[in-house]
Design a protein around this nucleic acid. Structure first.
Lengths: 110, 110
DNA sequence: TCCTTTAATCGTAATATTGCAATATAAAAA
DNA sequence: TTTTTATATTGCAATATTACGATTAAAGGA
């Protein structure tokens, strides 16, 4: 298979897994951290910062763009990427709702 | 390949991606939501609740256990699973630190 | 126009993931 | 002891992911 049966899950469950799936690779975590750390947006030097080949970085950027967490802007021969603030904030509230489920009233079974 | 070059990333980056990777499948999100919703711990009726075959659920539970987010307790012929509270809380702080990076001072490039 | 720079895309190899049928295991019940 | 119940494991097929070399595309400069 290799294909998740997403049709049997809720939209919210699929949304949570879609966002977190993108975070499920250290390169994409590193890319996002760099985008946050650098005040001005970044393009091709991600290749030097991360240490993966250019096509690999380009592929990871594409996945980040596909879920809407970054956006790119063509500037001459290079492309400037940055965090998509609005979508990042929206994603945060979805993930936080999931992470912050009430744990206190539950009794451990083991 | 299909294999992430985890050695070129920091421990924190790898930890973030390890946790979120587990959330990157709707079935595991659904399992965790159910474990949170049911006050008493749950074992095999996850198969009915989720709608995947028993070996598939068992496999997802294994992955959740491997990252330490749930724990299981054998009770007769059945196994009682529950959230590993301490590890869940620790995971939350790691993920939250990543999600809550300062976004306000950054200027959009596009 | 031709070259350089930058990034995307294509093609492909290696590996991982998802899902399930079949089977194994282990404890309780009959 | 045999049977039932509950879960884990094995094996496998289909698909996805990761990574990169080679190539392409598009803009700027010589």
């Amino acid at each position: 298979m290799g294909l998740a049966k997403s049709e049997i899950f809720t939209d919210k469950q699929n949304a949570i897994s879609a966002f977190t799936k993108v975070f499920g690779h250290p390169a994409r975590v590193a890319i996002l951290e760099h985008l946050f750390a650098i005040n001005t947006c970044i393009c091709g030097d991600l290749v030097d910062v991360i240490g993966l080949a250019q096509p690999t970085i380009s592929q990871h950027l594409k996945e980040l763009k596909n879920v809407g967490l970054i956006k790119g802007n063509v500037e001459g021969t290079s492309v400037c990427y940055c965090i998509h603030k609005k979508n990042w904030t929206a994603m945060k509230s979805v993930i936080n709702e999931f992470l912050n489920q009430d744990i206190t009233t539950k009794t451990d079974c083991c």
